[in-house]
């Protein structure tokens, strides 16, 4: 792989927010397609960052920098990426539940999902059940709604929001995934979320799995 593409990989890996836009433009200018840059640089870099995070070599600040870098890089690539719905792995709506102001984890998840090719609509923090439901209704092609909570105190809000989203699901096909420090696999199952992930890299894996399930369900439904 040419050094122009490797440079994109390194910039994301190192969290080089200052130079990423220029570096991505240079790779495009050298004739690489947006898809190639996504597949050969952006996604592998996201995997590498996730791996380092699991080894604790990377910590919160490192993740935030890489996330910011990914976000900036994708913004440059976006206009050049294929338009059809089949090209994107999926559409995700994400937000932190009402009463909770924490966005670090959510922002890192959003960035990693984007770096993996997902379209992400970020509703922000302190998002009520009504706002989640409205977003799911309005965005007819949403595939996954991702709900985050960082305080034990806001777990009841997560329970309420997931049940409201499940009511919408009866009419529409999408999946619900949850995460955040106080959330556990057991809790996620008890509130009837479709998936739980422990951290951002795991969230990307869970999102991919959910997309696989959705594809099969939709295919089965179409028969």
């Amino acid at each position: 792989m040419d050094e122009k593409v490797t440079a994109v990989f390194c910039a994301v890996d190192e969290g080089d927010t200052k130079n990423i836009s220029r570096i991505v433009k240079e790779a495009l200018g050298a004739g690489y397609s947006a898809e190639e840059i996504m597949n050969s640089a952006m996604m592998p870099a996201m995997e590498a960052v996730g791996e380092k995070f699991h080894r604790n070599e990377y910590f919160v600040s490192d993740m935030l920098l890489s996330a910011k870098t990914m976000k900036k890089g994708i913004a440059v690539l976006k206009p050049y990426l294929g338009g059809s719905a089949d090209d994107s792995p999926g559409n995700v709506i994400i937000g932190t539940v009402s009463g909770d102001l924490h966005d670090i984890g959510k922002d890192i998840v959003a960035a990693m999902l984007r770096a993996s090719g997902f379209n992400v609509l970020d509703l922000g923090v302190d998002v009520s059940g009504d706002e989640f439901v409205e977003a799911a209704e309005k965005n007819r092609d949403v595939d996954i709604v991702a709900v985050s909570a960082l305080l034990t105190a806001t777990l009841p809000a997560m329970k309420k929001i997931v049940s409201e989203l499940n009511a919408v699901k009866e009419r529409r096909k999408f999946k619900i995934m949850v995460g955040g420090a106080p959330v556990t696999e057991k809790f996620a199952a008890s509130i009837k979320a479709d998936a739980y992930s422990e951290d951002a890299p795991e969230a990307v894996k869970a999102a991919r799995r959910l997309m696989q399930e959705l594809k099969e369900e939709r295919r089965a439904g179409a028969d």
Binding site: F59, V60, S61, L101, H102, D103, I104, L151
Partner: peptide
Amino acid sequence: LASDSLFQKIFIQNLD
């Protein structure tokens, strides 16, 4: 602290 909007930013800075 949990409801303080500045807490997160300061916390990240103080990790280093």
